[in-house]
Amino acid sequence: MASNTRIILICSGKGGVGKTTLTANLGVALAKQGVRTVVLDADFGLRNLDLLLGLENRIVYTAQEVLEETCRLDQALVKHKQEPNLALLPAGNPRMLDWLKPDDMQRIVTMLTKEFSYVLIDCPAGVEDGFKNAVAASKEAIIVTNPEVSAVRDADRVIGLLNTNGIKPVQLVLNRVRPQMIANQEMLSVDDVTDILALPLLGLVLEDQQVIVSTNRGEPLTLSDNNSPASHCYSNIARRLQGEQIPLIDPSKEGSGLRNKFMRLMQTKIF
């Protein structure tokens, strides 16, 4: 199994575009499909992947203790409550930043590959040491970006760095897409983004208020079988990662249903 393990870095450059949310939801979605998945929080300074998964109070040991060999790897891994196929390896405390080296990161990931088919690494924002550590351990990458000029610019910079580090393939997830704003030309369109970044699009995630609700609850959207738009998008991304051919949603057709038409009518000021 070790050689087939996919080690995927989830990064963006800019903060707050949805790296951690994507990692958590993708982890759950993959685990639901029956593949052994581990999510690794590489954001040692400001960790919150455990929060999103609702596992904060179950952490006993962290990656730091594993590296110091004061505990075994299986002691540090936190199994998810509902999804036994999903595990979290929590980041160490922020002081760990000083001594963590790319080699350490590689050691941790190598240990994980023995047991899991997917290793998802939640990369910290920025392109400094935390990013370099995470890149050193990864084989492929998913770039998360929003349809905003600043997010796209940072993503472009990160793609350049990934290319020079020999990470392949690099795929793109466009997060927080608002079809209505794109239709009104108030937001960068999907084409605008892929045009600049020149990457294959792994998926679009529609803007969805449910994401905030689920984040605060510590239950990723993909966990329950609800029909929220973002949940659907995340599941599709997971299936595409597994090699399934699923057509991308078309934002211009999104929201053409009767209910959405009515909602739009409510929003437009016709009176």
Binding site: R153, D154, D156, R157, G160, N163
Partner: peptide, 10 residues
């Protein structure tokens, strides 16, 4: 001569 995309920061 250089071939390839030159990305932000390069």
């Amino acid at each position: 001569f250089h071939q390839g995309i030159l990305r932000s920061g390069e």
